[in-house]
């Protein structure tokens, strides 16, 4: 294995950083979306379902382009919200976080939702009639009983984040040391004449990280099952 330069180490660290932050930032929103779609009846539920799942069917490049249009200097959010606050997102690692979060969001919501759907509604009703308010019921009944789904959703989002390419390259660019994640670095090496060995080495790192994530997920799953 060749010795990585600092740029490659930066890419590995950035990939991990982007995936971790995207997963942590998405969790409350993913949980809320899954909760609404599982336990609440409201107008526009179908629209929410479609909106949440849309990134699953759209090409990541399209997602990246839409984000660019929204968050860019002339975009609706960029112009009216970010600029007045002095925030620049485009072509920063934060843009990579947003791209990763959007692309992985449907996977996270689906997993959490599956976990929530396995919670017997009678248990929730029992909690309510025993004096627990809805927030109390969420904390003491729904989260513990759908914890496997939440862990699975987080793991999926994290793993998806490590491999995110299309949306990230559009919205964050491919700037070594700033926004270049592992997939972007691999892309760059495969485009250069002497980059094959480095590309392969980064592929191995990518495989290794994915295996570690999957093993960790499996370990947590078993521990939760044992605790149950």
């Amino acid at each position: 294995m060749p010795i990585f330069t600092s740029a490659e180490y930066m890419a590995i660290l950035l990939s991990l950083k982007v995936s971790v932050v995207a997963t942590l930032v998405s969790l409350p929103f993913g949980f809320a979306a899954a909760y609404l779609m599982t336990f609440r009846q409201f107008r526009g539920k179908v629209a929410l379902d479609v909106a949440v799942n849309l990134p699953l069917t759209l090409p990541p490049v399209v997602i990246g382009y839409i984000l660019l249009l929204l968050l860019g200097q002339k975009g609706f959010i960029g112009q009216h919200l970010l600029q007045p606050l002095g925030i620049t997102l485009i072509f920063t690692w934060k843009a990579a976080v947003i791209a990763t979060a959007v692309v992985g969001f449907p996977l996270m919501v689906r997993s959490i939702r599956l976990g929530m759907e396995s919670v017997d509604e009678r248990l929730i009703q029992a909690a309510r009639t025993l004096g627990a308010g809805w927030l109390d019921t969420i904390v003491t009944v729904i989260i513990p009983l759908s914890f496997r789904g939440i862990v699975a959703g987080a793991a999926l989002m994290f793993a998806r984040g490590l491999g995110e390419f299309g949306a990230t390259i559009v919205v964050a660019g491919n700037i070594p040391g700033v926004t270049q994640t592992i997939p972007l670095a691999i892309y760059e090496y495969t485009s250069s004449p002497d980059g094959d060995r480095m590309a392969l080495a980064l592929c191995l790192v990518s495989v290794l990280l994915s295996v570690v994530v999957l093993l960790l997920h499996e370990y947590l799953n078993r521990r939760i099952a044992k605790a149950d």
């Binding site: 009678r122 009703q125 029992a126 309510r128 009639t129 025993l130 004096g131 308010g133 809805w134 109390d136």
Partner: peptide, 13 residues
Amino acid sequence: PPEQRRIGIVFQR
């Protein structure tokens, strides 16, 4: 809301 009614339920199961 149910938590304020103080009506307890013993279900079938």
